[in-house]
Design a protein around this nucleic acid. Structure first.
Lengths: 181, 181
DNA sequence: GCCCTTATGTAGCAACTGCTACACTTGTGC
DNA sequence: GCACAAGTGTAGCAGTTGCTACATAAGGGC
């Protein structure tokens, strides 16, 4: 890895930490640079302009977010669907995902306003999440694709309710999800 | 209504329109004032400081958002739960709610970052939504409270997926929700 | 007529924004 | 050894931010 690429990587690591604490929406060059131990001048030099900085950060963060999924769940194939959903929510609503939660809503908010980078990044994360849910799902479902999407939608709704302090609603909702099983 | 209160009201109306177009996250005094046909000086005068302006706006917007619910749905009591969920999503994901969608994610994002005004506003909206869903729900459910929360969580998850351009996931999820019925 | 509250315009401050100009030092290929 | 590209520090520009100081009306109670 070249020196430049190495610098980029360490800058992104430091900036990602800063952004997870302070939010992505109002991130500006000078605080980001300070967090990365450099100057705004250098961020522009390495990433072209602010948009480039943010785009690189989104990439980096999406990878990191997705990375938390790996090896986090024991295979759910032997569980019932209700048990699997429970395991899934335990992780996605638990402490491992917590640092990313606020960040995620920054990204959703940006995507909802039509920002292409944000939308693309969010889409990539969702696709990966879906693939993960599908690949670990219990076998023997009549329509596994639909069930995976159903679980994902529920989980995301629950995460939103967590974010605004309405976890109680989400808890009952998830408990109700597979009551027919 | 006093002149001051009337002014406040018309200012809020104008600012709300501006915020629905341009977002709440980066709203600043001078553009807000321009939208309201006044000056930043006057906004501070009437609302104390920027925080006061935003808090008043959140109040106003929450009321307006909730207001779109009234008389929008025929009573769902004769429908099956699947049909009711379908009707519900048709409205909450449809054009009537569209102007509020992006705004909603601004608020969620703020709430997730711990802003008390945002969180309170979001909580009030969710409580009202829940009451609405519960009060129109089909009769004869074994656990209507859980079912209402289940539907609400699904709807919100679907709205998030819409916001990031993954409506296809949401569509299948909703179709799957009451497949046991 | 006078006073005092309410309301408003103008100007400006200090901080911060993204970004640039310019000068300078390295390291590398030849 | 030298030219040239890559990398970096300093200074600054023009614009925006929330907010304030100051002056000035306008209206109502006495």
């Amino acid at each position: 890895m070249s020196k430049a690429a190495l610098d980029r990587q360490s800058m992104l690591t430091a900036m990602a930490a800063h952004v997870m604490l302070n939010g992505l929406a109002n991130a500006s060059l000078r605080p980001l640079a300070k967090a990365a131990g450099t100057s705004d001048r250098m961020l522009i030099y390495h990433f072209g302009n602010k948009e480039g900085v943010i785009a690189a950060l989104l990439d980096f963060l999406a990878e990191a977010y997705i990375g938390t999924l790996d090896n986090v769940l024991p295979d759910g194939r032997q569980l019932s669907r209700a048990e699997y959903l429970d395991q899934l929510s335990r992780h996605t609503r638990g402490p491992a995902f917590q640092p990313y939660a606020a960040l995620w809503w920054d990204i959703v908010s940006g995507a909802a306003r039509g920002n292409a980078s944000y939308r693309e990044s969010a889409g990539r994360v969702m696709a990966k999440m879906l693939a993960f849910v599908e690949s670990h799902a219990p076998v023997g479902d009549a329509d596994p694709a639909a069930t995976a999407r159903f679980m994902l939608t529920l989980i995301e709704g629950a995460q939103m309710l967590d974010a605004i302090g309405c976890s109680d609603i989400a808890d009952l909702a998830l408990a109700r999800a597979f009551c027919a099983d």
